[in-house]
Computed example of a mutant assay.
Amino acid sequence: MPDPDWLVWAREMQAIAQTGLEFSKDPYDRDRFAALRRLSARIMADHTGADATQIEALFEAEIGYATPKVGVRGAVFDAEGRILMVREAIDGHRWTLPGGWADVNQTPAQSVVREVFEESGYHVRAVKLAAVWDRARQAHPPTAFSVVRMFFICALEGGAPATSLETSEVGWFAEGAIPADLSLRRTLPRHISRMFAHWREPGLPTEFD
């Protein structure tokens, strides 16, 4: 289900405040935008039980024109048709497709190749952009910021399983044996199903929104 209205509105308020503070030179307008940012933090704190001061500090760290954050996920398949997954250490050691935030000065494809290696130990090559999904429309648990994720089909090129500071286990899974304890903040069962579909049918168009 979509994010609740209050979260959508609070995110929009924060984005307006952030962009306003970036471009406004008038001190009175800047005060108004800062007040709007504080109000968005109070709304989120009221609905989540989080500390408003911490949320405000999180928002203050965001500067420049407000845009969605970009994440990447890699769907890597082995010769037996199994998909690569890792356990995320910071999310209760739950399973997910390897991935993370796109890095500055790297293309999304370069970012997903790096993330897969860092989290699993495997060298891969991005061969297809399978999906570009807005996080808020994918039934994930709510988050403070707008996020867009790019899902790539990747070819396995070498390496060996290796965990990292971010992951505690690496594994390969057949389509009918996907772990039940998924990191739903990162990967949903539907995402995995669609990645198998794109792997089986490379000609499928890229999915979006």
Rank of each mutant, 00 (worst) to 15 (best):
M1E: 09
P2F: 08
D3L: 04
D3A: 02
D5T: 12
W6A: 04
L7S: 04
L7M: 15
L7C: 10
A10T: 06
A10L: 08
E12I: 02
E12Q: 10
A15K: 04
G20D: 06
G20K: 04
G20Y: 03
L21G: 13
E22V: 00
F23L: 13
S24E: 15
K25Y: 03
D26I: 11
D26F: 03
D29Y: 04
R32H: 03
A35C: 00
A35I: 01
L36Y: 01
L36T: 13
R37C: 02
R38K: 14
L39S: 05
S40N: 01
S40C: 06
A41N: 03
R42F: 01
I43K: 04
A45W: 01
A45S: 09
D46C: 00
D46H: 12
A50T: 00
I55V: 14
I55L: 15
F59R: 07
E60R: 15
E60V: 12
A61W: 01
E62T: 01
Y65P: 01
Y65A: 09
K69I: 11
K69M: 13
V70E: 14
V70F: 05
V72W: 02
F77D: 02
D78R: 11
A79Q: 13
A79T: 12
G81M: 08
R82N: 14
R82I: 08
R82Q: 14
I83G: 12
I83V: 15
M85T: 06
V86C: 09
V86R: 04
R87H: 03
R87D: 01
R87Y: 01
D91L: 14
G92S: 11
H93R: 13
H93E: 15
R94M: 10
T96W: 00
G99Y: 07
A102T: 06
D103V: 06
D103Q: 12
V104I: 09
N105M: 07
Q106A: 08
V113T: 14
V113R: 09
R114C: 00
V116C: 14
E118H: 07
E119L: 10
E119D: 14
S120Q: 07
G121V: 04
G121C: 05
G121W: 02
G121S: 08
Y122W: 12
Y122A: 04
Y122D: 01
H123I: 11
V124Q: 05
V124H: 04
K128G: 03
K128H: 12
K128T: 04
L129K: 06
A131G: 09
V132H: 00
W133K: 06
D134M: 05
R135Q: 13
R137M: 06
A139H: 11
A139N: 15
P141A: 10
T143W: 00
T143K: 08
A144P: 00
F145K: 07
F145L: 13
F145S: 11
V148F: 02
E157V: 03
G159N: 07
T163E: 12
T167I: 06
V170P: 11
G171K: 07
G171A: 09
G171H: 07
F173W: 13
F173C: 05
F173D: 03
A180N: 07
A180Q: 12
L182S: 04
R185I: 05
R190S: 13
R190Q: 14
M195P: 00
M195F: 02
F196W: 04
H198W: 06
E201I: 09
G203Y: 02
L204S: 04
P205V: 07
P205W: 05
E207N: 03
